[in-house]
Design a protein around this nucleic acid. Structure first.
Length: 481
RNA sequence: GGUGCUGUAGACAAAUUGGUAAAGUCACCUGCCUUUCACGUAGGGGUUUGCGGGUUCGAUCCCCGUCAGCACUGCCA
């Protein structure tokens, strides 16, 4: 039998890191089992669903490399199927009309809480007589459809991650609503648990892999599978992603959408790599850098952790830096150009390309996120330099002025400045001024960049020279002394 | 309030019929490399396995209790 899994996001927001991680696990399992990965958009909440979120979810999954084999399917295009399933439940006597108003239900729960009882629906309309129903109808009340949940029933399943899980029917909150009240139609909009089950049956999903916040839903859904006479799939509940405080990562934590991560300069391969590690450990592995394909060959739901996975920015940064550092400059430069542009640096895409590529090669080891490039290269752009106190102090040391003076003269005499030329000048100045090479290097660094630390000095100088910025900067430094 | 789950170094975590506690990765510290920072590389420190009992020759693992954290408890998904 072909393994079939799915990711079923609701388009009520941008693609969230938690959804994406669930997608990762589903994708890995599908690829490990040579199965199919299905994308289904759960848009039955008409109030909150937006088509732009659907687009964001699709593009986010694609960006991460989480390609789906089938879909996207939309629940709003399948409403007939849900209505038919609900009708089946009614016909079988497993579901019924409930005329309670939201206000009545609120009051009921308040009373229960006041008495120290667990809030739940008390199944009060389960056995309404036809006269009672007619009376509610006459009042103009529109019923929801509730699915009967036997309080005495124990629901048990073998979870692929958590082992045996059991749930008592009485802890499921009473008979569950499967359809909203309809305006004119007898059966209104279907609700999540019903739609999910109908779809998973219809799409022949064999393994439902989702977050552990769905565990109670799984118990309810198993009852629906049985009521609809369908085979119950396997379930695997993955741990939640936690923030630094150990709470479920939510929008309040700031950066949580895949879009945000992309804008901050994380590479899709790195982010996907990190997400595989959120709750899963590769077997006998000492290597944590790998592609989704590599991870898929080793992926096993049995090695998924039960404890929540705390989100670790430092580790994500490290993984991202590993990918960045391995990337060839001619590819990386293309990713960096938008960051320079949005920072307002003057970048001529025709004439500057090779200069930018050299610049990229120089600062690559310093990059953790793409966006860092703005800060890391700011000293190489523009006429003006801001000198740090440390640099000014250094420049005022005895002999520095003469070093800079001679360097300026040397630049003026040279047509172009290659790496070898720069080295030659440094050697020449060192000799004629009778100082240590380190003093010359640091003098040039302070004079050219205004700082005492930074990327390779000779390369920096060559790049500045190509932009004809070196002489002016050194002269300015001299004027400060 | 109820139900469920989880608890191993700062973080992610390994230890899969109970067998010397802690592999590995990140972070941290140190040496090397470098004009410097970073990268790289070679080392290093860090644990009463939440706590208390029990079973056992032996417990991170099984049992009981306890504490803490989290999730769920909708005419949301």
């Amino acid at each position: 039998m072909t393994i079939r899994v799915r990711i079923a996001p609701s388009p009520t927001g941008n693609l969230h890191i938690g959804t994406a991680r669930t997608a990762v696990f589903n994708w890995l399992y599908a690829h490990n089992q040579e199965g199919k990965f299905v994308l289904r958009i759960e848009d039955t909440d008409l109030e909150r669903s937006r088509s732009e979120y659907t687009e964001n979810i699709k593009s986010g999954l694609e960006w991460l490399g989480l390609t789906w084999d089938e879909g996207p399917f939309f629940q709003t295009q399948r409403l007939d199927k849900y209505t038919a399933a609900i009708q089946t439940l009614i016909d079988r006597g497993l579901a019924y009309s409930c005329y309670c108003t939201p206000e009545e239900l609120d009051k009921m729960r308040e009373n229960q809480k006041a008495k120290g009882l667990a809030p739940r629906y008390d199944n009060r309309h389960r056995n309404l007589s036809s006269e009672e129903k007619a009376a509610f109808e006459a009042e103009g009340r529109k019923p929801v459809i509730r699915f009967k949940i036997d309080d005495d029933r124990e629901i048990v399943w073998q979870d692929k991650v958590r082992g045996r899980v059991s749930w008592q029917g009485s802890d499921l909150g009473g008979d569950m609503v499967v359809a909203r009240a309809g305006e004119t139609e007898a059966i209104g909009q279907p609700l999540y648990n019903l739609a999910v089950v109908v779809d998973d049956i219809d799409m022949a999903i064999t393994h439902v892999i989702r977050g552990e916040d769905h565990i109670a839903n799984t118990a309810k859904q198993i009852l629906l599978y049985e009521a609809l006479g369908a085979k119950v799939p396997e379930f695997a509940h993955t741990p939640l992603i936690l923030n630094q405080d150990g709470k479920k990562l939510s929008k309040r934590d700031g950066v949580t959408s895949i879009d945000d991560f992309r804008k901050m300069g994380f590479l899709p391969e790195a982010l996907a790599n990190y997400m595989t590690l959120l709750g899963w450990t590769p077997p006998d592995s000492t290597e944590e850098i790998f592609t989704l394909e590599e991870a898929a060959t080793k992926f096993d739901l049995g090695r998924v952790n039960k404890a929540g996975a705390k989100f670790d920015w430092a580790k994500l940064d490290w993984i991202n830096s590993q990918y960045l550092h391995k990337m060839p400059a001619n590819e990386l430069v293309e990713l960096l150009i938008p960051y320079w542009q949005s920072a307002g640096y003057e970048v001529n895409l025709d004439s500057d390309r090779s200069w930018l590529e050299s610049l990229t090669a120089m600062v690559t080891p310093n990059l953790t996120r793409l966006a860092n490039v703005v800060e890391e290269t700011k000293l190489l752009f523009g006429e003006s330099v801001e000198y740090t106190d440390e640099a000014i102090e250094f420049l005022k040391q005895e002999g520095v002025d003469l070093v800079l003076q001679e360097a300026i003269t040397a630049i003026e005499e040279a047509d172009t400045l290659e790496t070898a030329d720069a080295k030659g000048i440094i050697k020449q100045v060192t000799k004629s001024q009778k100082v240590k090479k380190g003093l010359v290097m640091r003098s040039l660094r302070a004079g050219l960049t205004g700082e005492m630390h930074g990327p390779d000095l000779i390369q920096s100088w060559v790049l500045l020279n190509q932009k004809q910025l070196d002489r002016g900067r050194l002269s300015k430094a001299l004027s400060l002394i």
